Amino acid sequence: MRVRGISLVGALLAVAGCANPSTVVPPQAAAIGRPGGVVVESVLPVAARHALDRTLDRYLRQRPGRAALAVYDRTTGARYSYRERTPFVLASVAKVDILLAFLLGKQGELSAYERTLTSKMIRESDNDCAHELYLTIGGQKGLTRVLRRLGVEHTWPGPGLYWGTTRSRPSDQVKVLEWLTDPEGPLPASDRRYALKLMSSVEPSQAWGVSAAGGDVALKNGWLPVDAHDGLWTINSVGRLGVDGHDLLIAVLSERSPTMETGIATVERLAELAVDELTRSRATFTAAQVF
């Protein structure tokens, strides 16, 4: 899906909240348990993994900037990651992390006002609402604390109030999606359904990115011209896809694209190539137990 009529957000943060901050009650600390017990997972066979590496390498040699991705096929248990050692600025993808931390604190007990905040933050990518929710979960320290308790080790929330400058790796964002959607995870079923409902109904102009791989889609994107990169664009997309009977969690992060459209094209093509390999491969996966 390509971009049509996207209105750019001038800044990641605003001083004003989405509404009256005093009406937001800080969430109570929630006990966080690991999903399941022993989980049988797998990796792509070496030959298939190297073939996909080469395919992505060939494509990115023709593209400006850099990019990385991670995919987890929950149907087969296969995991794949690519070029993700160096973290990326998340921009509005950080709103998914904020949503997870907030829902963990609420445990299914959201007020009408809190539903307005979370809905606008995800569906409309409203920065004022994200700002307010970030404050509610304790800002940088609060989000870091939640993520570390979840085993999300390579994500560093932004300093002060700058949640949009949160840096992360694709695999960490796949982990965030796992915690947000896992039936054996700490979120109540009502919260899992609510999160997917929001991500399945973002503004049409913001429904680009991993949706290019097709199927049923729940996603959140991030886009930002970064001053530290001389105004070049950071373009990110994360989400859950249902493709040909496969339940996929995917994160594609990129930076230093000359235009927003160029970055979107890169992210979309990477998602298509990776999802195609994981869904068409009939190879036997190498199983491993993860405790």
Rank of each mutant, 00 (worst) to 15 (best):
D276Y: 07
K220C: 04
D73M: 05
V9K: 15
G215I: 13
A213K: 07
F102C: 06
E178I: 02
A218I: 14
K197A: 10
L60N: 07
L232P: 09
N236F: 01
T155W: 13
A48R: 11
A218W: 06
E184V: 00
S211V: 07
T23H: 09
S237E: 01
A207V: 09
P45D: 05
S190N: 13
E41N: 04
G263W: 10
V176R: 10
G245A: 01
L180K: 06
L60M: 14
R2N: 00
E41V: 07
W163H: 13
V176G: 08
I32W: 07
A94P: 02
L241G: 01
V290H: 12
K95P: 06
V89Q: 13
R256K: 15
V275G: 11
Y82N: 10
W233P: 00
G185N: 08
C129H: 04
E203N: 12
A195I: 00
L143Q: 15
S7D: 14
R61C: 03
A271Q: 13
G164C: 11
A218F: 04
L232D: 03
G5L: 15
L60W: 10
T23N: 10
R85H: 12
G185L: 03
S168V: 03
C129T: 12
P87S: 12
A212N: 09
V174A: 12
T116E: 15
S7K: 15
L180A: 11
R167Q: 14
S237F: 00
V290R: 13
G5P: 07
K106E: 05
P35Y: 03
T136N: 14
P188A: 13
V202C: 04
N221I: 00
S81P: 04
R58H: 00
T76D: 06
L273Q: 07
A189L: 03
T136W: 08
H154G: 10
T165A: 05
A19F: 03
E132C: 11
L241P: 08
A213L: 08
Q289R: 12
T116P: 11
V152P: 04
W179T: 09
Q140S: 08
A19T: 02
P64Y: 07
L104A: 00
T75N: 01
A19K: 09
D182H: 03
I122F: 02
E268T: 06
E109Q: 15
Q173V: 11
P204Q: 02
L273I: 04
V25M: 09
M260H: 15
P45I: 00
D97Y: 11
H229R: 02
G37V: 10
W179C: 02
F88M: 09
L56F: 05
L44D: 05
K197D: 10
V24C: 01
A251S: 03
G105Y: 02
L52P: 14
L270P: 04
P159M: 01
W156E: 13
E124I: 09
V25I: 13
A271C: 04
L147F: 01
P87L: 09
A67G: 13
P35F: 06
E132K: 12
T165I: 02
A101Y: 15
L177D: 02
E178R: 05
V210P: 03
R54L: 15
R280V: 14
E261F: 10
Q28W: 06
G263L: 01
Q107L: 09
M199Q: 05
E272G: 12
T86L: 08
Q206C: 04
P26G: 01
S81V: 14
G5F: 08
V174E: 12
D247W: 11
V238Q: 12
T234E: 10
